[in-house]
Structures are given as C-alpha cells and as structure tokens.
Design a protein around this nucleic acid. Structure first.
Lengths: 189, 189
DNA sequence: GTCTATATAGCGATAGAC
DNA sequence: GTCTATCGCTATATAGAC
C-alpha cells in the first residue's frame, strides 16, 4: 500500500478535532479545510463529499480497532480491565476517532452508525469468552459505553471535550475496574 | 400558573420527535413547524429563536426530572433498581426529553449540555445515600449512561431511535439489575 | 396568535485556472 | 494537487398583514 498523502491525514485530523471540541454542526467543509490548512477545493480533491469524509474516518476507526483488539488480547490484567480502563478518554488516536464517530452518529449519519455498531460487535465478541455469562457481558459493555458517553458530552469550546467530572480517574478508576471485573467473573452464588 | 398554550406544547413535542428520530441536523425551524402543524412565523411567536426552543425543552426536562425523583424515592425495589430499569427507553415523556436533549448536547449546544449536567447531578445526589461508596455510585451512574447512550444512537429514519440490539430487556434486564444492585450495595469483603 | 413574504448568511458542491 | 470564484440551496430570523 502506497503511503497516504499527508494532506489527506491532516484533513481527517482536523475533522476529528472540530467534531470533538465543537460538535457536528460546527464541522463544516470550510471549517475543516481552514483547520487543516487547505482550501475548500483542496479538501474536496481528497474527499469528494461530506459523506466521503465520514467514510474516511470510518476506515481509520476500523484500522485503529484492529490494533486495539491486538493489544487487548495481550493485556496483562485481562481484556475486561483493559477494555474498561481504555474507555476513559486518554485522548489517544482511537479515542478521538471513536468520539468523533459518535458525534456523527448522533447527528444522524448512517455511515457513522454502522461503523460504530461494527466496532462494538467486535469488542463484544472479544470479551465474551472472558465473562461469566451474557448478563456480565452487558454490564461490561454498558459501563464502557457510559464512560464514552460522558467523554463525548462536550461543552462547546471545551478543548478536552467532556463532562470529565463524572468520569472516575486514577485510584477511583482502579476501584471501579476491580468492582466490575469481580462482578463479571465471580462464580454465581 | 395559567395553563400553557396548546400550540407551544405541540411545538416542543414536534421538536423532540424530530430530534429523536432524525437527529439534530434535521430539526430545523421549518421541519418542526410543519410537524407541529403551524407556520415558521407561528413557531417563532412562541419561541423567539432556536436557542429559545432548546431552553423550552430544558424547562420541560427539569419539570419531568422533579416528578421522576419523586417516584424514585418511593420505588418498592429501591432507587438503584428503579434508576437502572427506567434507563431503558420506555418511550415515556422523560425518556423522550432526555434523548432529545442529548442530541442537542452532542450537536454542540451549551444550553443542552448544562441542562443534562444538572439533571445528572440531581440523580447522583438522590442515589448516593443508597450505595456503599463513590465507586459503587460511579458504577450505577455509568451503567445508566450506557443504556441511554445506546438508546440515543439512532439509525436515521428509525422511528424508535436506538441500537436496541445492545440494550437488554425483559429477563436479561432483570438479571442485570440484580447484578448491579448486588455489586453496589454488598458489604466490602 | 398566526400567517406570508423576504432579508441575510452560510452550507455543500462544481468549474476551471494554475 | 491545490487554488479562487461562484452556483444553487437551505437555514435562521425579521417585517408586517390579518
């Protein structure tokens, strides 16, 4: 595969940034082009339409998910702990792609909804073998969704993008992970 | 308090419906007016601007939250079970207001983000006395967020609006509630 | 209180120069 | 591969009749 043009990647980065910090409404072609340092016409050379831009983001998300599933399978404290811990936004590449895609899905994009559904299915399939039953799987998946949900509820203009008060970090997060791992793997009484 | 004009309520209902089923982008003044059976000008008599419309929804959400906290405090199986169970969309008035507001928040509305934050704070305060510690509170709140998050990820055109495959119902929901109530109230080992 | 008509601005997308 | 210029459309909001 030939190396992707730099401008193309810069455009995707800009699209993500604006989606995360200012919402779907603000992510216009003009705003994305300005942030990426190109003109509107230049942007439209790389992505023929707004939906093409979203499809480009979906491809990036799928690739990042591949890598994440790889890391998850080798996590020292197990896939559940890994999955919950990495659901707290660390502002890495995967988090940003995921939150940006969430914004688009909530804005009504079918491409984005489908992409999110697929990613979620793949994570669920990877975790299923490590929990007691489907109820425990629900608990783990929904808790992770809750963390992402809070991370994705941004104040407009908030660079970090998030209701961070509600998301446990540090020791509080460790305790939450212990609690959920225990609840999801403990033998039924 | 004088009874609210009927047209005003119909406009808010229409705004909610379109936000839920078609997303924030589709909820234009014209679309809302058409759904409510009034003209654009008629709508703008009741709500001076788009932000005024959102503020009207925020007021409705606050009133519905009052009622919900009332019911929660008297729930027979306790506030935690009540809270988790009612986080699965039953398409009642509160659910609709909440999901509509989530759409607006994700679209970048500061008014909507603030309204959601306040509602969440009030629920957390009501549940805190019934859980073991802050970690258990995080678990309950985040699980509920996860349920709402999934309910609010709509396929465009999906009347129900939701990734309902991921949300447990019936017996699966009962089991999940048992699991989380146990995890959140059991004495530490 | 509700309407029609219109002003104003910004959007996605195209055309064609360089 | 990137630009400027512009088209056609739609959005919010205003003005003023009824």
């Amino acid at each position: 595969m030939p190396r992707p043009p730099l401008a193309r990647e810069r455009v995707l980065d800009a699209y993500q940034s604006i989606l995360i910090s200012d919402g779907e409404r603000a992510a216009t072609l003009e705003a994305v082009a300005r942030e990426a340092g190109v003109s509107k016409g230049g942007l439209l050379y790389h992505f023929a339409s707004k939906e093409g831009l979203t499809a480009g983001l979906a491809a990036r998300l799928a690739a990042l998910t591949d890598e994440d599933l790889e890391r998850m399978s080798g996590a020292v404290d197990g896939p559940i702990a890994y999955y919950v811990r990495t659901s707290v936004m660390e502002d890495d590449a995967l988090d940003r792609a995921l939150i940006a895609m969430t914004r688009l899905a909530q804005g009504g994009s079918a491409v984005a909804s489908d992409a999110l559904r697929e990613v979620r299915d793949r994570w669920a399939a990877a975790i299923r073998p490590h929990v007691r039953d489907e109820t425990a799987l629900d608990l783990v998946m929904l808790l992770s969704d809750g963390l992402y949900f809070n991370n994705s509820l941004a104040e407009p203009g908030d660079e970090q993008g998030g209701m961070s008060d509600f998301v446990p970090t540090g020791v509080a997060l460790d305790r939450l992970i212990d609690l959920v791992v225990d609840a999801a793997t403990r033998a039924p009484e």
